[in-house]
Design a protein around this nucleic acid. Structure first.
Lengths: 157, 157
DNA sequence: CAGATCTTGCGGTGTTTTCGCAAAATTTGT
DNA sequence: ACAAATTTTGCGAAAACACCGCAAGATCTG
């Protein structure tokens, strides 16, 4: 085999060489690069590049290709990062909360964390009024002990 | 004009009709849909769909197309959310810090916020050791008064 | 209601991707 | 270290796709 196989969670995936890594790095920045554009940047023929991209997709290394849409288009001009602290005496409700957070459309990113807080949300809303409604609807509940809102002033990255 | 113009920050952008919104929703899920696939789903001809996509790109509604790569491929299995508090007596260094954060490869997301902290980072690293090195290299400096690390246990969304 | 403006669908054209094939490169077994 | 087996490469043809111009239709303006 030209590549060494590598264990990867439960999956066995062909290891990636320098060409694959270069291609991935480029496609993560701009997924619309054509075969010949890739060819010029990685030093392989267009066909070889495209075959590699094809395999990266099939094996799930490239999970999907998405269009990044300016959130302001949907009138969601305001981003808030929310730090949640839960009541540790009600751990049974965690799964329930988790399921609800997953369904809430204003929440665009949500992670379970360890440290001074328990959950970090990224919330996308139109304005303060909508954010206030979101807080009332989603965050004001017994299992949530405390929440801290950090309004995003600007995206650095 | 078939569309009403709408003020949008400093830009004037044609308002989006139901077709544009449908197209955007589809492309946000899968940017590789072809013209005829879009046509079947939105009820326009392939050419009309592609013309709309083209305009959405030109006007910046679609900012870019990116490949979503499984982060485990790069061995970056650990995500940490970092809350930074800056020394308010050195505001002149903010732009310098900002430029450095932008260049730092471990930082995959970075927002300037208002509230109990000043900056929120999302950091992708291989393991604790690499995170420790990141902290020493990037976070230990005079202008940063405090940092709080929240290691991500699981992604809810 | 008429003129101006924009969008649509169609068809042709150029680009991009996909596929087969033989040669070159890499790996495996002895 | 050598030869067979496997894999990847580059090239060229074929298919799929995106792009552009044009005439017709739709929408907007005064």
């Amino acid at each position: 085999m030209p590549y060494d196989d590598d264990i990867w969670g439960e999956f066995v995936v062909a290891a990636l060489d320098q060409f694959d890594r270069k291609i991935l790095a480029l496609l993560q920045e701009n997924a619309r690069l054509t075969g010949s554009e890739l060819a010029g940047k990685v030093g392989l023929s267009a066909a070889a590049c495209l075959r590699r991209v094809q395999r990266l997709r099939e094996t799930g290394v490239i999970e999907r290709d998405i269009a990044v849409v300016d959130p302001r288009v949907f009138g969601k001009r305001m981003t808030v990062i929310v730090l949640l602290t839960l009541n540790s005496d009600r751990p049974d409700r965690y799964n329930l909360l988790r399921a609800e957070l997953e369904k809430t459309p204003e929440i665009v990113q949500c992670d379970h964390v360890t440290g001074a807080h328990d959950i970090v949300l990224r919330v996308q809303v139109a304005d303060m009024e909508e954010y206030a409604a979101f807080v009332d609807r989603v965050l004001v509940r017994p299992y949530i002990k405390r929440y801290e809102s950090l309004a995003v002033l600007g995206h650095i990255k």
